[in-house]
Design a protein around this nucleic acid. Sequence first.
DNA 1: AAAGACCTTGACGGCCCCTTGAGGGGGCGG
DNA 2: CCGCCCCCTCAAGGGGCCGTCAAGGTCTTT
Lengths: 260, 260
Amino acid sequence: MSLGIDEPIREPWRHALEEPSVKDGILVLLVEDEPQMQRFLRASLGSHGFRLLEAATGAEAVLQATTHSPDIVLMDLGLPDVDGIALTRKLREWSRVPIIVISARGREEDKVEALDAGADDYLTKPFGVNELFARIRVALRHAGQSGGEGPGPVLDLGEVRIDLEARRVTVAGSDVHLTPIEYKLLVLLAKNAGKVLTHRQILKEVWGPAYAGQTHYVRVRMAELRKKIERADGPKLFVTEPGVGYRLVAERADEAPPVK
Amino acid sequence: MSLGIDEPIREPWRHALEEPSVKDGILVLLVEDEPQMQRFLRASLGSHGFRLLEAATGAEAVLQATTHSPDIVLMDLGLPDVDGIALTRKLREWSRVPIIVISARGREEDKVEALDAGADDYLTKPFGVNELFARIRVALRHAGQSGGEGPGPVLDLGEVRIDLEARRVTVAGSDVHLTPIEYKLLVLLAKNAGKVLTHRQILKEVWGPAYAGQTHYVRVRMAELRKKIERADGPKLFVTEPGVGYRLVAERADEAPPVK
DNA sequence: AAAGACCTTGACGGCCCCTTGAGGGGGCGG
DNA sequence: CCGCCCCCTCAAGGGGCCGTCAAGGTCTTT
């Protein structure tokens, strides 16, 4: 019965990532106006170590979400002042927090509408706590893996630095002029440093999906890039994977540590 | 809808990156053995522009997922040869593809087990197509937004590690360069670790269906693979099954989840 | 209109990778 | 012991992929 979130389940999918937060740290925003349900969920969640935040109206919910940025939102659709669907859309305008909708309405159209509005899951009352917890774990799992936000405004590759905001590239301190395609190509490779990108991927991202077959384009542009950027940097920055594509070597030795 | 709270809906969650593929390009792996359900889903998915891949057994499913890397998996739990839960875990060892479980079993423990095994959603039969599609959209939304972040799926075979996302292989920590065919061969064997793959299967998956008779190709490439990655690892990694094919020994001795 | 920046396109030489065939070894049945 | 089958090894050969260069076309700038 105590198949709660603290169960020592093996989690093979969570290879090696920052623990988003231990169970005790997880902050749940409960959007619910019905007192009975409030009590029930408050007890269940509380006894499993979640920290709780509550809101009984849409306005409150927005305020709570804004100021405390919870890790997950449980939203009942039956609110007095606002439609839960609209509230979901509102939240989705600026936040990617996981939203699990709880509703007494089991009609298919309701589910579709909520999910398309941005909800991550839809649970019909009555439901079991264990299922709720399992779905919370799934939602947190998703949120955790996209954890780190986009890369900073500056990509640092040893001698080479790319200022994404200024669209400026420097090699060993001095500016290097890149044409539009060269720049897109470099940024694409830099953002995926260490990974091999196939010709197809590169062409689709840089030139557009229609050019997926023009492998030669990549070769010519790549040669130009190498001439401009790889000059001073002794070790090869761009590595050719014959028959596959290209890879930009990652300078930093951090990388994902071994699984075991 | 009626309150001023809902602004123009611009699907803000999609700002992460360009959509990897339009709906028409999405490849669905349908793991289902029941003919009636097969027909139903085949028709529904097909008419909505999804490309379809089918598997009626666990082994087939693994092979299909291995070679075609679908964008999403729909899995019925009632398979003849393997438990769907175990299959989910198996897939999660190397892949982060969204998995939506479809089952006739509505018991809460079943849901919890499936979700904790790595499934992203759980749909109880009977269900409506529209809900299924909505949940597919949610799953794809999640998959799309995590773009290039995350630890990346890694196959761990003792000394040998295969980083699928980076297409990089290391033996005892140092990089090993593999040609395209060598790499495909290794990955195929690794994803089916423990199982014997016949020459025919290997040729079909790595070289293409037209090469099914060229057994010698496999032998030569296999020899090269052994020279490159089996050197330091004392115990044999690749086992020859005379007259049949090859097998990669599974190192991990665990994998015995007691069916509670 | 002329000049410049940028991309496409083709040709060519070099090198990587796959094929292909020959030679040899080990297991098994006769 | 011998012969057959299956497998491993090695190296030569050729085809295809890659890097390079330069001419020509298109669009923008002056």
